[in-house]
Amino acid sequence: MWLKDSSIGRKFIMSITGLFLVLFLLFHGSMNLCLVIDDIFGTQGYNWICAMLGANWYAIIGTLVLALGVVVHFCYAIYLTIQNRAARGTDRYAMEARQEGVQWASKNMLVLGIIVIGFLVLHLYNFWYKMQFAELTGVETSMFDPQDGSAIVKGLFTNGVCGIIYCLLYLVWLVALWFHLSHGVWSALQTLGWSNLIWLKRIKVIGVIFATIAVGLFMVVTVYFLGVNIGSMM
């Protein structure tokens, strides 16, 4: 099967799963933005979306597909890295210099990816476990109503010092995510073959803009609650 056996095939899988996850991030980020809007204007947008997703069949399928995407992306990343290290040969360069125009992120995608995944686990525990998982299994996983996502989020981020720490942790995560995406998006498009002499630079810019928007959406929410939290503590 060429998707496994050929290098471009493997890269194709990486780029497709990657782009899929980026799209999810965009959706997730936009959804999170509702939290801020809700908090400012007193609306119930976030919880409405939560309810719509909840434990419905399409949400479950969506979640499974998403999980599959993450797993495939991760496994291929490990597989590719092992292969690439082997391709480098046994002797390493004694001296390596930075090449001009080469992004730092592009050479550290695996590390960045692992950081992102690590936080993802935390994130899943913090939210998904308390929301969709609780809803599905009926197990009580937190003191909040699994339907009231908004409360769960606020409960975590505005919880005094603990909230500040969480916010900061999330910010670290988001920075790693930004670096990962700043290379990932254009790399995925390049792998799919959407690039030529003129578009080469443009796609790199698009990639960065895309990463900034996606990560920015999350940032806004985190920073907002960080502000609210600090404000309430003073």
Partner: peptide, 9 residues
Amino acid sequence: FGNCTNTGA
């Protein structure tokens, strides 16, 4: 040979 990860080096 290894897999290209578009580092651009």
